[in-house]
Simulated assay, not measured.
Amino acid sequence: MTLLQIDRALYLFIVVAFMMAFPPLTLAAAEGQGEDKILIPPPPAIAATAHILLDANSGRVLAENNADSRLPPASLTKIMAVYVAFNELTKGHLQLDENVNVSPNAWRTPGSRMFIEVNKQVTVSELLHGVIIQSGNDASVALAEHIAGDESTFAEMMNQQAARLGMTNTHFTNSMGLPNPEHYTSARDLGILTRTLIKDYPEYYKWFSLKEFTYNKITQRNRNKLLWSDETVDGVKTGHTAEAGFCLVASAVRDNMRLISVAMGTQSERARTAENRTLLNYGFRFYETHHLYKGHEPLKETRVWKGNEKFLNLGLADDLYVTIPRRKYKDLKAVMNFDQRIFAPVKTGDALGSVNVSLAGEVIADQKLIALSTIEKGNLFRRLYDAAILLVKK
Rank of each mutant, 00 (worst) to 15 (best):
Pro345Trp: 10
Val233Asn: 05
Ala81Gly: 11
Leu3Cys: 00
Ser152Thr: 08
Tyr204Asp: 04
Phe172Gln: 01
Ala274Phe: 09
Asn216Pro: 02
Thr77Tyr: 03
Asp55Leu: 04
Arg108Leu: 12
Leu314Gln: 13
Tyr329Gln: 15
Ala142Asp: 03
Glu117Trp: 00
Leu359Pro: 09
Glu182Trp: 06
Leu62Tyr: 09
Leu25Ser: 14
Phe381Ala: 14
Thr194Tyr: 10
Thr194Arg: 05
Ala48Asn: 08
His240Trp: 06
Asp189Met: 05
Gly166Ile: 07
Leu316Val: 08
Phe13Leu: 15
Leu39Tyr: 07
Gly34His: 07
Ser229Ala: 07
His291Arg: 14
Val124Cys: 02
Asp230Met: 12
Ile52Gly: 01
Leu280Lys: 05
Leu178Met: 12
Trp305Ile: 02
Ala81Arg: 00
Gln33Glu: 15
Met264Ile: 15
His290Arg: 09
Thr232Gly: 00
Asn101Tyr: 03
Leu3Thr: 08
Asn281His: 11
Val249Ile: 11
Ser112Met: 01
Met167Asp: 02
Leu27Pro: 04
Thr173Asp: 05
Ala163Glu: 14
Ile14Glu: 13
Gln95Cys: 04
Met19Tyr: 13
Ala334Met: 05
Leu380Gln: 11
Gly378Pro: 05
Trp107Cys: 04
Lys310Gly: 07
Gly349Ala: 10
Glu31Lys: 10
Asn105Trp: 02
Val84Leu: 09
Ala48Pro: 14
Leu10Arg: 12
Lys394Tyr: 01
Leu380Phe: 15
Glu376Ala: 11
Leu3His: 06
Arg164Gly: 00
Gln134Thr: 09
Val100Trp: 02
Met336Leu: 15
Ala48Trp: 01
Gly149Lys: 00
Asn356Met: 09
Leu320Trp: 06
Asp189Ser: 10
Pro298Ile: 07
Glu362Ile: 08
Arg113Ser: 15
Val262Glu: 01
Leu25His: 12
Leu39Ser: 14
Ser152Pro: 01
Val233Ile: 14
His171Met: 07
Ala242Met: 13
Leu391Ala: 11
Arg113Met: 03
Thr241Met: 09
Tyr329Cys: 11
Asp331Leu: 00
Tyr287Asn: 00
Ala139Ile: 01
Pro104Leu: 04
Phe311Asn: 15
Lys368Asn: 15
His129Val: 04
